[in-house]
């Protein structure tokens, strides 16, 4: 199976390259550093979300509350930091947003593991409740004057160059966060007892209980981590666009789940890899960002994503039904 999975990622990579060459072939602007840098930058937030979704899908569950959690985390963080006129190190807002996200995620875990509820329904409920709570009791206004440390973060580039027309472009440092988190999640999933427990419980929950795995702990771990990642993605998102808008990220859950599924994770649980997931994210980002370059109006974005998703899942389903016979 490992080999086939590796193959999946290989094919995904090929498709990605093929698409890049098609887009690049029809428009040189694709290969411009401005475009490439911006593609990488726009994959950061979705990538971080996707890592969380991967985790929860591997565990055999699903989470559709994470965009709500992300918004809740960054909005409260920013609002509070503005209130205290925060100027300290950028680590603080990150840690705060992450902590809020973690708490929310633990709430999901509590509901799922204590009352044996279905993750889809629980996260539907918590997502709705958290969004509603935020907008009804915390605020609906867009905060555009972010604390300085967050603005500095959005300007942080690990590589800059000045183009011939005098404009300066840079490779956003936020991408490093995605790389670091990917490596961390990959390590957790591959090399820690908890991570392997997540795979085990996604493979067969009853067997996991019988084998003495601490299943409730695994729920708290999984959903807590999803929350933490959502909180992180949220603060990165609001910093990169330099706005804290409580209406942001609505509907992001579907696109992220689509990316993770494209990356080869199985919704029945127990299967999926970080590398596949990241490739899936790149694929979606590439489609979204490159349509205009090949002369297709951006209106077509959703159609394109829909077609890719349908084709990919249909092919996978077809192949597995062939393999099963």
């Amino acid at each position: 199976m490992d080999k086939i999975l590796r193959k999946n990622e290989f094919w995904l990579f090929c498709i990605l390259l093929l698409m890049a060459f098609i887009v690049g072939g029809s428009n040189d602007a694709f290969w411009s550093r401005t475009n490439l840098f911006s593609l990488f930058k726009s994959s950061v937030v979705m990538g971080i979300f996707a890592l969380g979704v991967l985790l929860v899908i591997v565990s055999g569950g699903i989470d559709i509350s994470f965009p709500a959690f992300a918004v809740f985390s960054f909005y409260i963080t920013v609002k509070y930091l503005l209130y205290i006129k925060f100027t300290g190190p950028v680590v603080i807002p990150f840690a705060m947003s992450m902590a809020i996200g973690t708490l929310l995620g633990l709430m999901n875990a509590f509901l799922i593991s204590t009352f044996k509820l279905i993750p889809l329904i629980v996260t539907l409920g918590t997502g709705s409740a958290v969004t509603g709570f935020l907008r009804a009791f915390v605020g609906t206004g867009t905060l555009s004057n972010l604390p300085q440390p967050l603005i500095d973060f959005s300007r942080w580039n690990i590589y800059t160059e000045t183009l011939s027309d005098g404009s300066v472009i840079g490779f956003s440092g936020s991408f490093l966060i995605l790389i670091a988190l990917s490596l961390a999640v990959a390590f957790v999933l591959r090399r820690t007892t908890l991570g392997r427990g997540v795979y085990a419980m996604g493979g067969d929950l009853t067997a996991a209980v019988r084998a003495g795995l601490p299943v409730p702990k695994l729920y708290y771990f999984t959903y807590g981590l999803v929350g933490a990642l959502a909180g992180t993605a949220g603060i990165v998102h609001c910093s990169l666009i330099r706005l804290a808008n409580p209406r942001d990220l609505e509907g992001a859950e579907m696109e992220v789940i689509a990316a993770v599924v494209l990356g080869g994770a199985s919704l029945t649980g127990g299967k999926g890899t970080v590398s596949g997931t990241i490739l899936g994210v790149f694929l979606i980002v590439l489609i979204k960002g490159s349509l205009i370059l090949v002369g297709i109006p951006t209106d077509w974005q959703k159609v394109a994503i829909g077609v890719v998703l349908i084709t990919a899942t249909a092919l996978t389903a077809y192949r597995s039904s062939k393999g099963g016979r």
């Binding site: 974005q301 959703k302 994503i305 829909g306 998703l309 349908i310």
Partner: peptide, 9 residues
């Protein structure tokens, strides 16, 4: 999920 994107698209 796919057709939702498609129809809305």
């Amino acid at each position: 999920l796919g057709t939702m994107q498609l129809y809305t698209g």
